[in-house]
């Protein structure tokens, strides 16, 4: 069974931006922010004041408080992948999305193998139970 500590989640504060993919590609993200690209037209920006998206006047830019996140070590990532992920884990840095222990989740993988594990707050208790 998992040898590692279960992840500790906390609510994340960020911005959700839906815009033309090209506008998101070109957007000057605020310094220190962390951008989770969910799909070509969808970005979750953590750790920044309200970001602007030049180039798309119709962009949706709105606070995003729907995710809980947990910083997980490379060892924890490997452990979660071994026991809870049916699909093959890519190597970072990148965003890996899909079911983890049956719960739709996201892993923002860093180059060193550690990651930020994201889950909808509404399903956080389920993921905690299953990884814990």
């Amino acid at each position: 069974m998992p040898a590692c500590e279960p992840p500790r989640f906390e609510g994340l504060v960020g911005w959700r931006i839906i815009a033309d993919p090209s506008a998101l590609d070109a957007a000057p993200w605020p310094a220190g922010s962390h951008v989770v690209r969910i799909s070509p037209d969808d970005a979750f920006v953590i750790g920044a004041a309200e970001p602007g998206v030049p180039g798309d006047e119709h962009a949706i830019v709105t606070p995003e408080l729907g995710f809980a996140g947990a910083a997980v070590s490379a060892e924890q990532v490997a452990d979660i992948a071994l026991h809870h992920i049916e699909w093959q884990m890519p190597t970072g840095p990148c965003v890996a999305q899909g079911q983890i222990a049956g719960v739709p989740s996201k892993l923002v993988l860093h180059a060193d193998g550690s990651a930020l594990l994201l889950v909808a707050c509404a399903a956080r208790h389920e993921l905690e139970d299953r990884l814990g």
Partner: peptide
């Protein structure tokens, strides 16, 4: 195309 290969249960 965005996320890669996943079991069909995810879809």
């Amino acid at each position: 195309p965005n996320c890669g290969s996943r079991p069909f249960e995810e879809y």
